[in-house]
Amino acid sequence: MLEIRNLRAAVDGKEILRGLDLTVGCGEVHVILGPNGGGKSTLMNVLMGHPKYEVVGGTITFEGEDLLGLKTFERARRGLFLSFQTPEEIPGITVENMIRTSMQAMSGGKVKYLEFRKQLRAMMTELKMDPSYARRYMNVGFSGGEKKRSEILQLLMLNPKLALLDETDSGLDVDAVQIVSSGVAKFHNENNSCVIITHNAQILKYLTVDAAHVLIDGRIVKDGGSELVEQISEEGYGAFAEAVDG
């Protein structure tokens, strides 16, 4: 589904990703681990086409199509979804208006309001969100946990092919992690894929991890399975950092 080859990307002239390779197959769940500043969020932003990040080399293909030639909204319409680490506040646009507008943009047609509302309510109940939040302005005045839930709500409503989750579990208490985690599990099936950045093995509780990758200093330095997640939560990145330095 997603193939990244020798990807190099820079922010403000500084190269952050320095030859990154990653292949994600359909139906797979990948976890990306690594210390702060290693390039995890940069990878997510580059995949989504953030204008601040400049791709200086390499290729990204999504379902056989060159992603780098596409704008952010086109990538979203092809089926990419980014759950933001710090979601933006958008005053004056309600949660339901934004999600419905997105769904209409994706499908190119009208989304019937009553059906939409029913579906939205069901998903909000699932995520233990107060239904009155549908009428609130997107993320304005939301707590950290509410913002993350609103991201997962969008994930469930938009139902993309590839979900990129950038520390969706960070800053959440145990209960919230549980809700977010089961939300992601509800989304995932054999026809879609997830790339998850996390520091917390908890979010993976309801998911079967197909592969884990350690990203340090702009490169994947180690590939493995779910055992890698456990190893790192016990031992940290020390061993891998040395390997890079050496």
Binding site: P51, T72, F73, L82, F84, E88, S102, L158
Partner: peptide, 8 residues
């Protein structure tokens, strides 16, 4: 970026 990442 947030809105365009949602296909708008």
């Amino acid at each position: 970026f947030y809105l365009t990442a949602r296909g708008i």
